[in-house]
């Protein structure tokens, strides 16, 4: 018969196998801490490389000039910066209204039966490899025609759509029921309630989701590689007619050449891109915390 023999009146220090168990536990905790430190360190190393090398390439000319002819040294990435802005801007104009409307449909109108396939489609879109999205748009808009800024923006909008829809939906779900009920009790019609009560109180979340989606889209390369990768040095507004220069593809092509001066420009471009993305992320997070607080969560 195995009865524990513990002297309960002994000092309260480890007895039996506890010392060994503590060692196991401390080892596990050490690994958990170590893994976290490693992840942060990897981020730190990547960012540090981009900052150190990128800052070297950075100059006013780099930000404002066109690349030098023939891809030689000197010159800047101004067209790519403007082009990325343009592409992401157009993509946002397409994705944001649709994303918000889908979210409103899910929270305000759809019954469970209707909501299921829509949620599923959003989840699947979100999980789709972005290269597949790129190839889809290639097949839809480019094959037999030519690459275009619009095709690229359309591909980016497909990446953004589920992100915006999901974060909007989350925020709409936080809008207190009482607000809607109060509006209903006053005999306010549904569309007025949605437009004047529900959407404004979720505005913070919608903006956050959009900013995060913009940050994501700005760095996407795979959807652009089939749609807007063979570009010149000019950003034109002829979105349907010509491909648009952009930073991700610029970095990609520069990284594939063995030319060291190209690497320097790629670091510089990476610095610009990463700064924008990290700032957008931090900003979105701060905004989210604030709007969550405002909704009392």
């Amino acid at each position: 018969m195995s009865t524990t023999e513990v002297d309960f009146t002994a000092p309260l220090v480890a007895t039996g196998n506890l010392r060994r168990r503590h060692r196991v536990s401390r080892a596990a905790e050490g690994l958990a801490l170590g893994s976290s430190v490693a992840a942060v360190a990897v981020l730190g190393i990547i960012v540090a490389y981009v900052v150190v090398h990128g800052a070297g390439a950075l100059s006013l000319d780099f930000l404002t000039k066109e690349p030098s002819p023939g891809g030689g040294p000197g010159g800047g990435i101004a067209p790519a910066i403007v082009g990325t802005g343009l592409l992401v801007g157009v993509a946002t104009v397409i994705a944001m209204p649709i994303g918000v409307l889908v979210a409103v449909y899910l929270t305000e109108f759809a019954g469970p039966a209707a909501a299921r396939p829509i949620r599923l489609a959003l989840d699947l879109l979100n999980g789709l490899p972005s290269i597949v999205v790129g190839l889809f748009v290639f097949g839809l808009l480019v094959v037999g025609k030519h690459q275009s800024g619009f095709a690229a923006a359309f591909a980016l909008s497909i990446i953004m759509l589920p992100l915006i829809a999901r974060s909007t939906q989350e925020m709409l779900g936080l809008v207190p029921r009482q607000l809607r009920e109060a509006a209903d009790a006053l005999g306010v019609s549904r569309w007025r309630t949605v437009l004047t009560v529900v959407l404004p109180s979720a505005a913070g979340g919608i903006v956050t989701g959009t900013v995060l989606a913009v940050a994501r889209a700005a760095g996407e390369t795979a959807p652009l590689i089939f749609t807007s990768s063979i570009f010149g040095n000019r950003v034109t507004l002829d979105l349907l007619g010509t491909p648009i220069p952009n930073i991700p593809v610029q970095i990609f092509t520069l990284s594939e050449t063995p030319d060291p001066s190209g690497y320097e420009r790629a670091w510089g471009a990476a610095f610009v891109l990463l700064s924008f993305i990290l700032v957008a992320n931090i900003g979105a997070r701060a905004l989210l915390t604030r709007s969550r607080k405002k909704m009392g969560r």
């Binding site: 976290s36 992840a39 942060v40 990897v42 981020l43 990547i46 960012v47 490389y49 981009v50 940050a215 994501r216 700005a218 760095g219 996407e220 390369t221 795979a222 991700p248 970095i251 990609f252 990284s255 790629a266 670091w267 990476a270 891109l273 990463l274 993305i277 990290l278 992320n281 931090i282 997070r285």
Partner: peptide, 18 residues
């Protein structure tokens, strides 16, 4: 937690170049 999520935000082309 935010830093780990930041790691997910680094574009793949930048990670690949690095």
């Amino acid at each position: 937690g935010s830093l780990v999520e930041m790691l997910a935000a680094v574009p793949s082309v930048v990670i690949g170049f690095w």
